[in-house]
Design a protein around this nucleic acid. Structure first.
Length: 473
RNA sequence: GGCGGCAUAGCCAAGCGGUAAGGCGACGGAUUGCAAAUCCGUUAUUCCCCGGUUCGAUCCCGGGUGCCGCCUCCA
C-alpha cells in the first residue's frame, strides 16, 4: 500500500514520496500566541499530529517543526501600527513579551492534554529575526523585493507562480475591494517583508532603520529553512492559511533559494459549531477548559475531532461530544474484550478462528489511513473488530493478534485507553465476595458490593463465563 | 466581484459509475435475582432540488438552493 495524500498544490491525491528515503521533513503552521487556542485550532494541530503518527507507523523518521508566532501581525487598521499581541498587551496592561510567553505555555499544556506528541522543535519568530533579515536581503539583491523608506515589500509581479497554490490571479486580487491600497506599494497585492514604525513595542534594529519588525509570512520561510533546509516534504496548516500566508511563503522561499519549497501542501478544513461558523460574538469559541467545565474528558474531544475526515468540514455540538464519549468507551471496551479473549475468556473454541478476519480488518484500517488519512474509515475497522470479538468469532490467537494491532493502531489515533488497570487483586477479592453473596441469594449484599465498585469506576458484567470487570468512561 | 470546499437516516459520518460502511441514539424480543453488558430483529427503496450523459448515477456534466472558507489577522 502507498500512502496517498491530497496535495493542495496540485489539487489531487498523489502517492506520497519523501525527498530523502526514510525521512520526512514537515513544517506545521502553529499558533499566534496572543490568546487561548480554541477547539478549532486544536483540529489543525491534531491533524498535523495524526499525519506525523501515520508517517511514523509507516516507518518514516519524521522531523517535525511547528512555529510559535510571538511577534504578532499588523491588524486591519495598519495605520495604528499595532499588532494583535500588542493590542492584547495594552488591553491587559502587560508587556507584550509576557503576553506571548504566557499563552505559549498554555498552548503547550493544551497540546499535552490532547495527547499531541511534541514536535522536534517549536521555533519562535522572535528568535529568528537575523534569519528573516538574511532572506529579505537576498530577495532585495535578487530583485524580488523593493524598499520604500524603512519598509520592504515583496514584488508579487516578479514571481510568475504567485497564485498557483490558491488559484488566485494577481489581476483579480487587484479587483477585490478589500485590499487596502497603500500608496508606496507598486502593486496592491505586494506584501510586507519588513516594516518600520517607532511606535511598535516589539521592534528590532536593522539596516532599514532603528525600529522595525518583520512581516508575517517571512517568519515561516525563514524558520522552515533554518530547521529543515531549503526544501521540505510537507507543509500543513488550516484552510485559511492557503492565501495569503502559504502563497507568500512559496514566493519568498522559492525566489530566495531558487528551488521548489514544499512538495506536499496539506490543509485541514474548519471545525464548525452547531453547523455554522465558530463565532466569538455568539460565544461559540470553546477551549479545553470549557470542555472540562462541562465534565468531559479531553480524550473525548480528541475522538470527536478525528471522527471526521480532515478535508471535510466537521461539526461540533455538545450532543456530538456526548456521543463521542459513548463511542470511545466502546473502543476502550474493545481492548478489554481482546485482552480477555486472548486469555481464553469469550474466545472461540478453535484458537485459529478469526485470523483471516483480523488480518482483513487490519488491512482495512491501514488502507483507510493510507487513503489521505481517512480516520473515519480506520475507526470503522476498529468497531468491526469489536463486533468480531463480541460475537465470539475470534480464537485465542486471533484475539492476541487483534490486541497487538489495536495497540499499534492506537499509537496513531491516540484516543483509546489501553493500559490494564492494576487494582486487580482488590477487585478480584470483592468480586469473589459478591459471587458468594449471590450464591447465598443475599442480593442486598451483592448489590452493595457492585455499587461500591461502581463508585470506584469499576463496572461489573455477569457473563456465562464468569464475571468481567472494566473501568468506566 | 474573483477563487475554493461541503450537502448521505433522529444525530454524526464513510462511500464517489454497478445498485447505501461504521458510530451514537431509538424501538421490539432473548438473557439476568435486579441491573449492566451481550445476543437476535427493526430503524435511508435511497443519498438537497431540477435537468442531462449512461444499460445503469449518491457518485459524471449543466443549472439552482443552503452552509463553510479565502481574497484583511485567523487552524
Amino acid at each position: 500500500m502507498v500512502f496517498t495524500v491530497y496535495n493542495s498544490l496540485t489539487r489531487q491525491k498523489e502517492p506520497f514520496q519523501s525527498l530523502q528515503a526514510g525521512t520526512v521533513r514537515m513544517y506545521n503552521c502553529g499558533p499566534t500566541v496572543y490568546g487561548r487556542a480554541h477547539i478549532g485550532n486544536m483540529r489543525a494541530y491534531l491533524f498535523a499530529d495524526t499525519l506525523r503518527r501515520w508517517l511514523e507507523y509507516r516507518g518514516y523518521a519524521v522531523q517535525q517543526v511547528m512555529n510559535i508566532t510571538d511577534v504578532g501581525h499588523i491588524q486591519a487598521d495598519a495605520d495604528e501600527g499595532e499588532d494583535k499581541i500588542e493590542a492584547q498587551a495594552k488591553k491587559e496592561n502587560k508587556d507584550p513579551w509576557a503576553i506571548s510567553r504566557g499563552w505559549t505555555e498554555l498552548f503547550f499544556k493544551d497540546l499535552q492534554a490532547l495527547g499531541v506528541r511534541p514536535a522536534m522543535i517549536y521555533p519562535k519568530a522572535s528568535d529568528h529575526i537575523p534569519e528573516m533579515l538574511e532572506m529579505i536581503d537576498g530577495l532585495l539583491a535578487k530583485g524580488y523585493a523593493y524598499q520604500v523608506d524603512g519598509d520592504v515589500y515583496y514584488e508579487v509581479g516578479r514571481f510568475p507562480a504567485y497564485g498557483r497554490l490558491s488559484g488566485n490571479k494577481v489581476e483579480e486580487l487587484d479587483a477585490g475591494a478589500r485590499i487596502e491600497v497603500r500608496e508606496e506599494k507598486r502593486h496592491p497585492a505586494d506584501f510586507a517583508l519588513w516594516k518600520s514604525d517607532p511606535r511598535h513595542l516589539m521592534k528590532w534594529k536593522s539596516r532599514f532603520g532603528e525600529h522595525g519588525f518583520p512581516g508575517w509570512h517571512i517568519e515561516c520561510s525563514a524558520m522552515s529553512r533554518k530547521h529543515l533546509g531549503n526544501r521540505i516534504d510537507i507543509h500543513t496548516g488550516g484552510e485559511d492559511n492557503i492565501f495569503p500566508h502559504h502563497e507568500c511563503e512559496i514566493a519568498q522561499t522559492e525566489a530566495f533559494t531558487g528551488q521548489p519549497f514544499a512538495n506536499f501542501w496539506m490543509h485541514c478544513k474548519f471545525l464548525q459549531v452547531d453547523g455554522g461558523k465558530m463565532s466569538k460574538s455568539l460565544g461559540y469559541v470553546w477551549n479545553l477548559d470549557d470542555i472540562r467545565a462541562r465534565g468531559f474528558d479531553i480524550r473525548a474531544l480528541r475522538y470527536c475531532l478525528i471522527r471526521g475526515h480532515y478535508r471535510a468540514p466537521l461539526n461540533f455540538t455538545w450532543e456530538i461530544l456526548k456521543e463521542s464519549v459513548s463511542a470511545l468507551s466502546n473502543l476502550d471496551d474493545l481492548v478489554v474484550r481482546l485482552r480477555n479473549a486472548s486469555r481464553g475468556m469469550g474466545a472461540s473454541a478453535s484458537a485459529e478462528d478469526g485470523l483471516e478476519e483480523v488480518s482483513d480488518l487490519i488491512a482495512e484500517f491501514e488502507s483507510g489511513m493510507d487513503d489521505d488519512l481517512n480516520t473515519p474509515r480506520a475507526l470503522a475497522a476498529l468497531f468491526q473488530l469489536r463486533t468480531a470479538v463480541l460475537e465470539g468469532r475470534l480464537g485465542v490467537s486471533a484475539a492476541a493478534a487483534a490486541l497487538q494491532f489495536v495497540l499499534k493502531a492506537n499509537s496513531v489515533l491516540g484516543v483509546i485507553r489501553t493500559e490494564e488497570a492494576n487494582l486487580a487483586a482488590e477487585v478480584e477479592a470483592l468480586i469473589a465476595a459478591r459471587q458468594e453473596a449471590r450464591k447465598r441469594k443475599d442480593f442486598k449484599e451483592s448489590d452493595r458490593i457492585r455499587d461500591t465498585l461502581l463508585a470506584q469506576g469499576i463496572v461489573l458484567e455477569d457473563t456465562p463465563q464468569g464475571v468481567v470487570w472494566k473501568q468506566k468512561g
